[in-house]
Design a protein around this nucleic acid. Structure first.
Lengths: 356, 356
DNA sequence: ATCATTATAGGAAAATTTTCACATTACGCA
DNA sequence: TGCGTAATGTGAAAATTTTCCTATAATGAT
């Protein structure tokens, strides 16, 4: 029995594309699903043939799943879990599934030697990748070379995301650090220290904002950045070290809330009160619930970041030739009790008690 | 050209099964992938035919993905994100993928009216479900009826998981609550209050342990359980209410760490010190990093819970006829600074300052 | 350089999945 | 009750994916 003979479309299938490209149907099928073992040249021939026949290859592939790759994290802490939820919610709304993968790799291995999780390699399982956690250039290069669509959280790319073919979403923590620093200055503080490991991109960005605001006010940016695995510990040790060296310091800008928690501990251990003796500000608003006194911090919007990453990557699936997209999500200054105006008397007190 | 004619296996394919069951290959394919639209009777005929031919249908299905369903949670907090990571790690080690889904439903809707996420319904996408978050009987019944394999975190099933066909993993918080209560009693406390909303199963279980330990010591279990959405707030309000009513209280057992945090706040607000005036204990060890002083609590092992849930559900996929499996993971008492021995003088102080 | 060995690519055929059309049953509604 | 309409279920055929196998290229040893 015949099918609809030709109402409008001549019913183009793999057979027709194969004929146009002069290969077998099997090969067209392989190209469609990115099933490896296809010569790039042939792949392009097939794609051109499909284009000539006016077939949208991406529409034919029915797998509707993205991978959410949490890179190099033993813990899924609050910030990233909120990114995950934001991403999942948007995916679900668009009818896509999301495969969650935790993935560990070294930033130093050249990209050719990296070994992707198998689900990501299979174009018939996962159509694109959303990268959270801490990433580095080698993985991005690998994805570029393999032609796998992705979007990445720019803040967490070691060395910053440069020359990518993929899409990037930023949280504007440079702006956030700048705004926060201006705020501290407006409270009268002059001896403002930054605490954070500048080798980590998210600290480095925040520091950049801090730095520019300090310079703009004619002040000298200063930071303490002894490196520790645990960020709370890092905040703690750097605070103690800073106090031990007798540095003048009336305010601390911590690279994130977890670090600020360490700063709290360090100050408390040294008999200093927040904010009476030292003002403390954080960044990312993940610890606000827990800390006492309430932490003045820069709120970020992780759910939005997750949603945007998915949005961009779905765009790209629809239009693979799109130029790299970059989106920056603003941040918001949240004032709580951990920062207070610097009074002359207070500065004196601080110097007297905290510093030798 | 012929294939291997018959080295050992007569090369059984869908064609053979179809002949045996006297249906079309298409139907066998549909049964294999649970592609809905197959009459249950025919489905069973096909399965029997396959069994007769000694074919393991579950082996033929190549989709290797589980769904991780986070039920009724707006946030993915620490405890559940650790379950997720534990589950993912074990999945990955076994070569399975995990689809992350957030899902909201009412516990009151009868199961027939619940609407599952579409990925879960498609047997060709997801082979089984791991249930975290807060669940209720209706969803479990629905899965039972649909014949979808699942494992669930028993602690978080409203009303307790009863008469299930699926598998259950428990964290032994009853034991934990009991052990903790005995510890507080051993410190000399007699007026020990439980704070938690007993309608929530995880609080109820913990309370059960508390209760049995109190009774065994000849003491009266007492609790404060005003209900609030936010658990920190719940801890706070109940503490204030308890103090306002002038109850004698030298130790508080909070239903979880987040609640304990609220208790800390409530006590601090009332000018009471932990542990000098009141000892506080938590449960689940999720807030230990944040609180000051360090919270004595019951450590649970969420990564293990996640791993076990996956393990059980993979077992079941391999052997669908297995009797319901139940696993209980023990807990561990962690002593920190928030609990101290009751001294006669201290009890006096507590009564004096805290209670009108 | 020559030959063996291995890895990759791609076609043909087999296996499986999906589509399409039709049969059957369920469901309102006059 | 009977009729139209919708929903479900199925086989046959079409479409697609996968397997199996050969041809060719790449690598390495002598």
């Amino acid at each position: 029995m015949k099918h609809k003979p030709d109402p409008k479309r001549p019913k183009i299938g793999l057979r027709e594309i194969a004929a146009e490209a002069d290969v077998s149907v099997a090969t067209v099928s392989r190209v469609l699903n990115g099933n490896s073992h296809v010569d790039p040249a042939i792949r392009d021939v097939v794609r051109d043939a499909a284009a000539k026949l006016n077939v949208d290859l991406s529409q034919r592939n029915k797998t509707k799943a993205l991978a959410f790759l949490l890179s190099n994290r033993a813990m899924l802490h609050s910030f990233h879990s909120r990114i995950l939820l934001g991403a999942e919610a948007y995916c679900a709304a668009q009818g896509w599934d999301m495969i969650f993968l935790s993935f560990h790799y070294s930033p130093n291995v050249p990209w050719k030697e990296l070994h992707l999780p198998k689900a990501v390699q299979r174009h018939d399982v996962v159509r694109a990748v959303v990268l959270a956690g801490a990433n580095s250039a080698n993985l991005l290069e690998l994805l570029d070379h393999k032609g796998i669509a992705y979007s990445v959280l720019g803040n967490n790319v070691v060395g910053g995301p440069k020359n990518l073919k993929g899409d990037v979403v930023f949280s504007d923590d440079i702006q956030g650090g700048q705004e926060m620093t201006r705020y501290l200055i407006s409270l009268g503080h002059r001896n403002i220290w930054f605490v954070g490991n500048l080798r980590l991109p998210w600290f480095a960005r925040h520091f950049e904002g801090y730095s520019s605001a300090m310079i703009e006010a004619g002040l000298v940016p200063r930071w303490s950045g002894l490196e520790f695995e645990d960020e709370t510990e890092m905040g703690y040790i750097n605070t103690k070290s800073l106090l031990a060296q007798g540095e003048a310091c009336t305010a601390v800008l911590a690279g994130n809330d977890q670090t600020a928690h360490g700063v709290f501990k360090g100050l408390r251990d040294s008999g200093l009160k927040v904010p009476d003796d030292v003002s403390v500000a954080g960044c990312d608003d993940t610890a606000s619930t827990w800390l006492h006194p309430g932490l003045t911090t820069t709120r970020e919007f992780p759910e939005q970041l997750g949603q945007q990453m998915v949005k961009l990557v779905l765009n790209r699936i629809a239009q693979p030739s799109l130029a790299p997209q970059v989106v920056t999500i603003p941040t918001q200054l949240i004032k709580r009790e951990s920062c207070s105006p610097l009074l002359a008397s207070k500065e004196l007190a601080s110097v007297k008690t905290g510093v030798r």
